[in-house]
Design a protein around this nucleic acid. Sequence first.
RNA 1: CGGGCCGUGGCGCAGUCUGGUAGCGCGCUUGACUGGGGGUCAAGAGGUCGCGGGUUCAAGUCCCGCCGGCCCGACCA
Length: 570
Amino acid sequence: MRWSSAFIPTLRDDPTDAEAVSHKLLVRAGFMRQLMAGHYSMTPLGFRSLRKLEAIVREEMEKIGGQEFQLPCMHPREIWEKSGRWSTMGDEMFRLQDRKEADVALGMTHEEIFAFHAAELRSYKSLPQIWYQFQSKFRDEARPKSGLLRVREFTMKDSYSFDLDEAGLDHSFDRHFEAYRRMFKRFGFEIVAVEASSGSMGGNTSIEFMLRTDAGEDWVAGCGGCGYAANVEKAESVIPEIADGEGLAEPEKFPTPGVKTIDDLAKMDGGAAGDRQIKTLVYKIDEKDVLILLRGDHQLSEQKLVDQVESETMRPAEPGEIKKLLGALPGSLGAVGRGDLFVIADLALQGRKDMVTGANEDGFHLRGVDLARDIDVKGWLDLREVQNGEACPMGGKGLEVYKTLEVGHIFKLGTKYSEAMGATVQNENGESVTLVMGSYGIGLERNLAAVVEANHDENGICWPVNIAPYEVCVTVVKPKDVECHEAGERLYEKLSESGIDVIIDDRDERPGVKFKDADLVGFPYRVTIGPKGLADGVFEFVRRRDGQKRDIPIEHAAETIVEAVLDERS
RNA sequence: CGGGCCGUGGCGCAGUCUGGUAGCGCGCUUGACUGGGGGUCAAGAGGUCGCGGGUUCAAGUCCCGCCGGCCCGACCA
């Protein structure tokens, strides 16, 4: 490619509406443009990199026996109703009607559709199957943000495994796990694999692949000692036991005027520290009132609650509803004496005595509360969100909680979708068996942005060779000079013929402009061809990621460059 | 969906409070000098001031409504 005839719209300034590094750089370096919130057009440079990323994913999928499909992105309502997700997906699913007023959805994911086709599988002999596709996904995100990191329309490689039993699923899952690890390595960044909540996908096990970056929006708790890592939606930790006094023979009410929060009560004379309080939350779970109890200084992980309670809907109760139910407003709530209500308590409260909690009368609390004696807890669950510094559950060191970006997610689904779609095969004994499914997703655009988040400096992007739109940029310092021009053209020809993705910067621009542009766009290697070097019989060869420069003799220049590039392809 | 901020040449912004000729930097075009990290000079092109209504002799500026974008939060296979 000749820069002089390429469409590479670089910008001198950061776009004002960009915050994330990858967003700023991908726009500035001319890889993409926004069409509307959450929808981006990839320009030729961006599309080249995206295709390279896609090729890597495809290679790794083929390696584990994946077979590529292409499914429609518009789906009939019926198929989503069969799985129950027409209603559970809510506003996040784009919906429209055709001319016959039939309901149609834009696919957010394809479990239903692949399971529908898997219903054609007849015999255990044809298992396992791994099916995949690259397809646009549509999700009506409440808040698209950070450029490509959170969008409403994107390309995903999604694959689905079909096995006869759990053992088969485990194997397909493990194969994917390894394939994903290889992909991220080839993309040029390190990931942590964490246990995750499966969210609305259903199923029991899921692993997220996380890139550590402040541009992310998921929190992970990781142990430096043993390698344990989990999304905070799922993470556990060990906290020191607290020795309680015997307390009182029965709870005693005392006035706490003006106390509205855990902190207020901790600071009040005659109050109690956060870890001696019981925090009482009221939730409407399938419109039934439920009290949730936690230690005062702990935070509820709503996702843990969702994952452990079977329900269609869940929401915090409104203040009005709470007043009506308990007779007091938040700040003075408690579960003592409310055996008529469903009470769920966090494990950290188990066995605690001499605690303080609300009296269900505004401005009053109870002291001397003994969980076992005074509160009728119907269920003990782990509901607490882990905090930075708490001990690792695997016996390692302290946990560090840090921000990450989810770059891939793999699920063991079980039979939810195969059952809904009637995807069964006959086993050796002629019995009908429901297929056991897994599903595995990786968003292409988000991963492209992740590569940038992990590979950039103050001057621009530093693409790894594998993802770079062009591997080498030949900068002709003085294109009007015949010798310069011809030397550049010759090298460009040789590199092209050797199969290198090369762009020649033949624009009649000042050298500084070309260097800045090349750094911004982020080609892994750049060759400077100018009068100075020519006089000495050399080209200057520059590596983007560390700025390493060396002069290479013109006669071996092409070979040297080809070798350097091939060395880094993987 | 709640809170905040913002829409003015391609990009970044000033002008809006206090109504009165639409401006600046970068980029772009042409020419000259230049030429190893965004050079200099000269001459140009380019804007229904997000959209609609209203007030006024007069609206980028004031009022009402709408649309769009960004950030925080809620939400998020």
